[in-house]
């Protein structure tokens, strides 16, 4: 049974259809890349998947259970890493983690243990007492990801987690994602780096104008590489 099932997802803002019947599934231990140019509908899709945005139509299931914006039980199975650096700069890394652990109902010694684990995973254990605002871009990105791991999610949703980080931090982030997938976590991953998606993702879905254009293993999309397939499907026209 897939950890995430998305069927016929639709969303429009006023008269503009942003997501039009998107569907895909992510299995346990699988890394699924949701790819598309800017404005394709990726972030809207992800917002509906994590339960931040209400959908107009379609269905989202987490571990077989229906999921929506009010789904507290299913939300506790998801780890969400937004593309923005969603950390509080005035708080230390440990305080950031403690706050989000509390939101997921993780408290006391269990919270301390998981915060310690996460700090080790993202390589911030020795700087955990510093305000996050003093961190470099790469460290902030790692903390951003660490918050998403606190609840040991069955589905980890990463929205462009490597944007703007140096090769060392990128390698560290990709290694962490591989390890998590290896441990059975289903990963939904978006990125603009096709080479990264090719290396990391077991399967990818390419969407544009709110529609799923193609889906499959990166080497199955009928082009020399993923970038060529992506440009073939979405065109070369500038989007921004």
């Amino acid at each position: 049974m897939p950890v995430l099932e998305v069927v016929g997802l639709r969303k429009s803002y006023k008269d503009r259809l942003v997501v039009d019947g998107v569907g895909f599934a992510v299995r346990e231990g699988e890394t699924y890349g949701l790819l598309g140019p800017n404005g394709a509908g990726k972030t809207t899709t992800i917002s509906m998947v994590v339960g931040v945005l209400a959908r107009d139509a379609g269905e989202v299931r987490i571990a077989g259970r229906p999921h929506d914006t009010a789904g507290r039980a299913t939300k506790s199975l998801i780890g969400y890493v937004p593309q923005e650096l969603a950390v509080y700069p005035d708080l230390t890394a440990r305080e950031n983690l403690r706050f989000f652990a509390g939101l997921y109902g993780i408290r006391g010694s269990e919270a301390r243990r998981r915060i310690g684990e996460v700090l080790e995973i993202v390589g911030l254990a020795d700087r955990a007492g510093e305000a996050a605002g003093k961190y470099s871009g790469g460290m902030s990105r790692r903390l951003n990801i660490g918050i998403g791991l606190l609840n040991r999610p069955r589905l980890l949703v990463l929205d462009e987690p490597t944007a703007g980080v140096d090769p060392q931090s990128r390698t560290s982030i990709l290694d962490s994602v591989r390890r998590l997938a290896g441990d059975g976590t289903a990963v939904l991953y978006t990125t603009h780096y096709m080479e990264e998606a090719q290396r990391l993702c077991d399967r990818v879905g390419i969407i544009d104008h709110g529609r799923m254009l193609a889906e499959g293993r990166p080497d199955e999309l009928g082009a020399p590489d993923l970038e060529a397939a992506f440009l073939q499907l979405t065109g070369r026209e500038l989007r921004d």
Binding site: S47, V50, G51, V52, T69, R72, A73, K75, S76, I78, Y80, P82, Q83, E84, L85, A86, V87, Y88, F100, L103, Y104, G105, I147
Partner: peptide, 12 residues
Amino acid sequence: SGMLARIMAAPV
């Protein structure tokens, strides 16, 4: 900053 979305994605 994406923080509100992150909080709303939590079981709250």
